[in-house]
Design a protein around this nucleic acid. Structure first.
Length: 271
DNA sequence: ATGGGCACCTGGCTGC
DNA sequence: TGCAGCCAGGTGCCCA
Protein backbone atom coordinates (compact mmCIF):
# COMPACT_ATOMS: atom_id res chain seq x y z
CA UNK A 1 0.00 0.00 0.00
CA UNK A 2 0.42 3.04 0.22
CA UNK A 3 2.47 3.45 3.37
CA UNK A 4 2.12 6.29 5.86
CA UNK A 5 3.23 9.12 3.50
CA UNK A 6 0.74 8.08 0.84
CA UNK A 7 -2.10 7.77 3.33
CA UNK A 8 -1.23 11.11 4.91
CA UNK A 9 -1.00 12.76 1.48
CA UNK A 10 -4.43 11.34 0.69
CA UNK A 11 -5.83 12.61 3.99
CA UNK A 12 -4.59 16.13 3.34
CA UNK A 13 -5.86 16.00 -0.20
CA UNK A 14 -9.41 14.88 0.55
CA UNK A 15 -10.04 16.62 3.87
CA UNK A 16 -11.00 20.04 2.52
CA UNK A 17 -13.58 18.62 0.14
CA UNK A 18 -15.18 16.48 2.84
CA UNK A 19 -15.33 18.36 6.12
CA UNK A 20 -18.65 20.16 6.61
CA UNK A 21 -20.27 18.39 3.69
CA UNK A 22 -23.26 16.10 4.00
CA UNK A 23 -23.24 12.63 2.48
CA UNK A 24 -25.98 12.29 -0.10
CA UNK A 25 -25.36 8.72 -1.09
CA UNK A 26 -22.99 5.82 -0.78
CA UNK A 27 -22.66 4.03 -4.11
CA UNK A 28 -21.18 0.59 -3.69
CA UNK A 29 -20.48 -1.14 -6.95
CA UNK A 30 -18.09 -3.84 -5.66
CA UNK A 31 -18.61 -5.07 -2.12
CA UNK A 32 -15.87 -7.73 -2.25
CA UNK A 33 -12.97 -5.83 -0.73
CA UNK A 34 -10.64 -7.33 1.88
CA UNK A 35 -13.75 -7.80 3.98
CA UNK A 36 -17.25 -7.65 2.49
CA UNK A 37 -18.75 -4.17 2.63
CA UNK A 38 -22.38 -4.23 3.75
CA UNK A 39 -24.86 -2.82 1.22
CA UNK A 40 -27.00 -1.51 4.05
CA UNK A 41 -24.21 0.95 4.85
CA UNK A 42 -25.76 3.27 2.27
CA UNK A 43 -28.82 3.78 4.42
CA UNK A 44 -26.73 4.49 7.51
CA UNK A 45 -24.42 7.05 5.88
CA UNK A 46 -26.93 9.10 3.91
CA UNK A 47 -27.66 12.44 5.52
CA UNK A 48 -24.66 12.46 7.85
CA UNK A 49 -22.27 15.38 7.93
CA UNK A 50 -18.49 14.88 7.76
CA UNK A 51 -16.86 16.25 10.90
CA UNK A 52 -13.20 15.46 10.29
CA UNK A 53 -10.77 13.29 8.33
CA UNK A 54 -8.01 11.80 10.43
CA UNK A 55 -5.31 9.17 10.03
CA UNK A 56 -4.25 6.39 12.37
CA UNK A 57 -1.40 4.23 11.07
CA UNK A 58 -2.30 3.46 7.44
CA UNK A 59 -6.02 3.86 8.10
CA UNK A 60 -8.06 6.91 7.17
CA UNK A 61 -10.73 7.81 9.68
CA UNK A 62 -13.68 9.75 8.29
CA UNK A 63 -15.62 11.04 11.27
CA UNK A 64 -19.35 11.42 10.71
CA UNK A 65 -22.06 12.49 13.11
CA UNK A 66 -22.99 9.00 14.27
CA UNK A 67 -19.75 7.09 13.76
CA UNK A 68 -16.53 6.76 11.82
CA UNK A 69 -15.66 5.24 8.47
CA UNK A 70 -12.36 3.36 8.68
CA UNK A 71 -10.77 3.08 5.23
CA UNK A 72 -7.62 1.23 4.21
CA UNK A 73 -6.01 1.50 0.78
CA UNK A 74 -4.46 -1.97 0.75
CA UNK A 75 -1.63 -2.41 -1.77
CA UNK A 76 -3.11 -0.73 -4.80
CA UNK A 77 -5.93 1.48 -3.57
CA UNK A 78 -6.42 5.21 -3.98
CA UNK A 79 -9.07 7.73 -2.96
CA UNK A 80 -9.79 10.73 -5.15
CA UNK A 81 -12.13 13.68 -5.06
CA UNK A 82 -13.94 14.29 -8.34
CA UNK A 83 -17.32 15.32 -9.72
CA UNK A 84 -19.92 12.72 -8.80
CA UNK A 85 -20.91 12.61 -12.45
CA UNK A 86 -17.42 11.61 -13.64
CA UNK A 87 -17.43 8.36 -15.59
CA UNK A 88 -16.45 5.33 -13.58
CA UNK A 89 -13.49 3.27 -14.67
CA UNK A 90 -12.45 -0.31 -13.99
CA UNK A 91 -11.93 -1.04 -10.28
CA UNK A 92 -13.84 2.00 -9.02
CA UNK A 93 -15.47 0.22 -6.07
CA UNK A 94 -17.35 2.85 -4.11
CA UNK A 95 -18.35 6.53 -4.14
CA UNK A 96 -19.13 8.68 -1.16
CA UNK A 97 -21.37 11.26 -2.83
CA UNK A 98 -21.37 14.69 -1.22
CA UNK A 99 -23.90 17.52 -1.31
CA UNK A 100 -21.30 19.65 -3.11
CA UNK A 101 -21.71 17.63 -6.29
CA UNK A 102 -18.35 16.01 -5.71
CA UNK A 103 -17.62 12.51 -4.53
CA UNK A 104 -14.87 10.59 -2.83
CA UNK A 105 -14.13 7.66 -5.15
CA UNK A 106 -12.19 4.52 -4.23
CA UNK A 107 -10.26 2.63 -6.89
CA UNK A 108 -8.36 -0.55 -6.03
CA UNK A 109 -7.35 -3.14 -8.66
CA UNK A 110 -6.27 -5.78 -6.16
CA UNK A 111 -9.13 -5.24 -3.69
CA UNK A 112 -6.88 -5.55 -0.65
CA UNK A 113 -8.35 -2.30 0.63
CA UNK A 114 -11.12 -2.23 3.20
CA UNK A 115 -13.94 -0.12 4.58
CA UNK A 116 -15.51 -0.48 8.01
CA UNK A 117 -18.26 1.44 9.77
CA UNK A 118 -17.54 2.00 13.42
CA UNK A 119 -19.88 3.49 15.99
CA UNK A 120 -18.01 4.19 19.19
CA UNK A 121 -14.33 4.96 19.61
CA UNK A 122 -12.37 3.88 16.50
CA UNK A 123 -9.22 3.56 18.63
CA UNK A 124 -10.88 0.55 20.25
CA UNK A 125 -11.86 -1.07 16.97
CA UNK A 126 -10.15 -4.46 16.64
CA UNK A 127 -8.21 -3.27 13.59
CA UNK A 128 -6.72 -0.34 15.49
CA UNK A 129 -6.62 -1.41 19.12
CA UNK A 130 -3.26 -3.21 19.09
CA UNK A 131 -1.29 -0.88 16.85
CA UNK A 132 2.05 0.58 17.92
CA UNK A 133 2.85 4.28 18.30
CA UNK A 134 2.81 6.81 15.48
CA UNK A 135 6.37 7.48 14.27
CA UNK A 136 6.06 11.21 15.00
CA UNK A 137 4.82 10.66 18.56
CA UNK A 138 7.18 11.44 21.41
CA UNK A 139 6.84 7.96 22.89
CA UNK A 140 8.43 6.49 19.78
CA UNK A 141 12.10 6.77 20.68
CA UNK A 142 15.31 4.75 20.99
CA UNK A 143 14.48 3.59 24.52
CA UNK A 144 11.10 2.28 23.43
CA UNK A 145 12.57 0.36 20.48
CA UNK A 146 15.45 -1.07 22.50
CA UNK A 147 13.07 -2.30 25.20
CA UNK A 148 10.69 -3.82 22.69
CA UNK A 149 13.47 -5.50 20.71
CA UNK A 150 15.20 -7.04 23.71
CA UNK A 151 15.77 -10.73 23.11
CA UNK A 152 14.07 -10.66 19.70
CA UNK A 153 15.70 -12.59 16.88
CA UNK A 154 13.52 -11.23 14.13
CA UNK A 155 15.35 -9.24 11.46
CA UNK A 156 15.31 -5.51 12.17
CA UNK A 157 13.60 -4.73 8.85
CA UNK A 158 10.69 -7.07 9.61
CA UNK A 159 10.60 -5.73 13.17
CA UNK A 160 10.13 -2.18 11.86
CA UNK A 161 7.44 -3.28 9.41
CA UNK A 162 5.48 -4.93 12.23
CA UNK A 163 2.68 -2.46 12.92
CA UNK A 164 2.81 -3.42 16.60
CA UNK A 165 6.32 -1.93 16.78
CA UNK A 166 5.59 1.34 15.00
CA UNK A 167 2.89 2.13 12.47
CA UNK A 168 3.18 3.41 8.94
CA UNK A 169 6.47 1.86 7.87
CA UNK A 170 6.01 -0.51 4.94
CA UNK A 171 8.31 -2.24 2.49
CA UNK A 172 9.71 0.83 0.75
CA UNK A 173 10.35 3.02 3.76
CA UNK A 174 11.75 0.19 5.91
CA UNK A 175 14.56 -0.32 3.39
CA UNK A 176 15.04 3.42 2.95
CA UNK A 177 15.13 4.17 6.69
CA UNK A 178 17.68 1.43 7.36
CA UNK A 179 19.86 2.80 4.58
CA UNK A 180 19.71 6.28 6.09
CA UNK A 181 20.47 4.85 9.53
CA UNK A 182 23.39 2.76 8.22
CA UNK A 183 22.00 -0.51 9.57
CA UNK A 184 21.78 -3.79 7.64
CA UNK A 185 18.22 -5.10 7.33
CA UNK A 186 19.06 -8.72 8.24
CA UNK A 187 20.45 -7.98 11.70
CA UNK A 188 18.51 -9.36 14.65
CA UNK A 189 16.40 -6.67 16.31
CA UNK A 190 17.73 -7.73 19.71
CA UNK A 191 21.31 -6.97 18.71
CA UNK A 192 20.86 -3.41 17.54
CA UNK A 193 22.77 -0.92 19.72
CA UNK A 194 21.21 2.07 21.43
CA UNK A 195 22.99 4.56 19.18
CA UNK A 196 21.70 2.66 16.15
CA UNK A 197 18.12 2.73 17.44
CA UNK A 198 18.54 6.46 17.82
CA UNK A 199 19.63 6.76 14.21
CA UNK A 200 16.77 4.48 13.12
CA UNK A 201 14.18 6.65 14.89
CA UNK A 202 15.56 9.76 13.21
CA UNK A 203 15.83 8.03 9.84
CA UNK A 204 12.21 6.85 9.96
CA UNK A 205 10.97 10.34 10.78
CA UNK A 206 13.19 11.92 8.13
CA UNK A 207 12.27 9.56 5.33
CA UNK A 208 8.54 9.66 6.10
CA UNK A 209 8.62 13.45 6.41
CA UNK A 210 10.55 13.86 3.17
CA UNK A 211 8.15 11.51 1.39
CA UNK A 212 5.10 13.41 2.65
CA UNK A 213 6.62 16.63 1.32
CA UNK A 214 6.93 14.97 -2.10
CA UNK A 215 3.36 13.67 -2.06
CA UNK A 216 4.45 10.08 -1.40
CA UNK A 217 5.93 7.41 -3.64
CA UNK A 218 4.17 6.16 -6.74
CA UNK A 219 5.36 2.81 -8.08
CA UNK A 220 2.30 1.89 -10.10
CA UNK A 221 -1.19 2.56 -8.86
CA UNK A 222 -0.96 5.20 -6.19
CA UNK A 223 -2.33 8.66 -6.94
CA UNK A 224 -3.13 11.58 -4.67
CA UNK A 225 -6.63 12.94 -4.09
CA UNK A 226 -6.38 15.06 -7.24
CA UNK A 227 -5.10 12.18 -9.38
CA UNK A 228 -1.44 13.21 -9.43
CA UNK A 229 1.29 10.71 -8.53
CA UNK A 230 3.77 11.07 -5.67
CA UNK A 231 7.26 12.28 -6.55
CA UNK A 232 9.37 10.67 -3.85
CA UNK A 233 10.38 7.76 -6.08
CA UNK A 234 13.19 9.83 -7.54
CA UNK A 235 14.61 10.35 -4.05
CA UNK A 236 14.82 6.68 -3.12
CA UNK A 237 18.34 5.54 -2.23
CA UNK A 238 17.94 1.77 -2.41
CA UNK A 239 14.37 0.63 -3.16
CA UNK A 240 14.13 -0.92 -6.64
CA UNK A 241 17.77 0.03 -7.31
CA UNK A 242 19.34 -3.46 -7.23
CA UNK A 243 22.62 -3.50 -9.14
CA UNK A 244 22.74 0.26 -9.50
CA UNK A 245 25.52 2.23 -7.78
CA UNK A 246 24.80 3.57 -4.31
CA UNK A 247 24.11 7.29 -4.47
CA UNK A 248 26.54 7.81 -1.58
CA UNK A 249 29.40 5.33 -2.11
CA UNK A 250 28.89 3.81 -5.59
CA UNK A 251 28.76 0.23 -4.25
CA UNK A 252 26.10 -1.73 -6.18
CA UNK A 253 22.83 -1.95 -4.27
CA UNK A 254 21.85 -5.47 -3.28
CA UNK A 255 18.45 -7.11 -3.12
CA UNK A 256 17.21 -10.22 -1.29
CA UNK A 257 13.97 -11.68 0.02
CA UNK A 258 12.75 -11.21 3.57
CA UNK A 259 9.34 -12.44 4.61
CA UNK A 260 8.38 -12.90 0.93
CA UNK A 261 9.17 -9.23 0.23
CA UNK A 262 12.13 -7.62 -1.51
CA UNK A 263 14.67 -5.88 0.68
CA UNK A 264 17.31 -3.51 -0.68
CA UNK A 265 20.49 -2.28 0.99
CA UNK A 266 23.96 -0.90 0.34
CA UNK A 267 26.76 -3.22 1.56
CA UNK A 268 29.08 -0.22 1.66
CA UNK A 269 26.95 2.16 3.74
CA UNK A 270 25.12 -0.24 6.05
CA UNK A 271 26.83 -2.15 8.85
C1' DA B 1 5.02 -15.13 22.89
C1' DT B 2 7.68 -15.65 18.61
C1' DG B 3 8.68 -16.64 14.00
C1' DG B 4 7.52 -18.19 9.51
C1' DG B 5 4.50 -18.85 5.75
C1' DC B 6 0.15 -18.44 3.25
C1' DA B 7 -3.79 -16.25 1.64
C1' DC B 8 -6.48 -12.67 -0.48
C1' DC B 9 -6.53 -10.26 -5.88
C1' DT B 10 -5.37 -8.05 -10.51
C1' DG B 11 -2.20 -6.33 -13.84
C1' DG B 12 2.19 -5.49 -15.93
C1' DC B 13 6.43 -7.13 -17.39
C1' DT B 14 9.82 -10.78 -18.94
C1' DG B 15 11.26 -14.58 -21.35
C1' DC B 16 10.43 -18.61 -23.97
C1' DT C 1 1.51 -13.28 -30.91
C1' DG C 2 0.58 -16.13 -26.80
C1' DC C 3 1.17 -17.61 -22.54
C1' DA C 4 3.39 -19.11 -18.24
C1' DG C 5 5.79 -17.32 -14.49
C1' DC C 6 7.06 -13.80 -11.44
C1' DC C 7 6.57 -9.56 -9.12
C1' DA C 8 4.10 -5.55 -6.85
C1' DG C 9 3.09 0.50 -1.33
C1' DG C 10 -0.52 -4.79 3.30
C1' DT C 11 -1.84 -7.57 6.88
C1' DG C 12 -4.90 -11.16 9.20
C1' DC C 13 -4.60 -15.73 10.26
C1' DC C 14 -2.79 -20.42 10.90
C1' DC C 15 0.85 -23.43 12.07
C1' DA C 16 5.03 -25.05 14.63
Amino acid sequence: MPELPEVETTRRGIRGALVGRTIQAFDLRESRLRWPVARKLAKELAGQRVLDVRRRAKYLLIDLERGTLIAHLGMSGSLRVMPATAARILHDHYDLVLDSGQCLRFNDPRRFGSLHWCTGDPAEHSLLADLGPEPFDGQFDAEYLAARARGRKVAVKLFLMDQHTVVGVGNIYASEALFRAGVRPRRAAGRIRRAEWQRIVEAIRDVLGDAIRQGGTTLRDYVNADGTPGYFRQELYVYERAGEPCRRCETPIRQFQQGQRSTYFCPGCQA
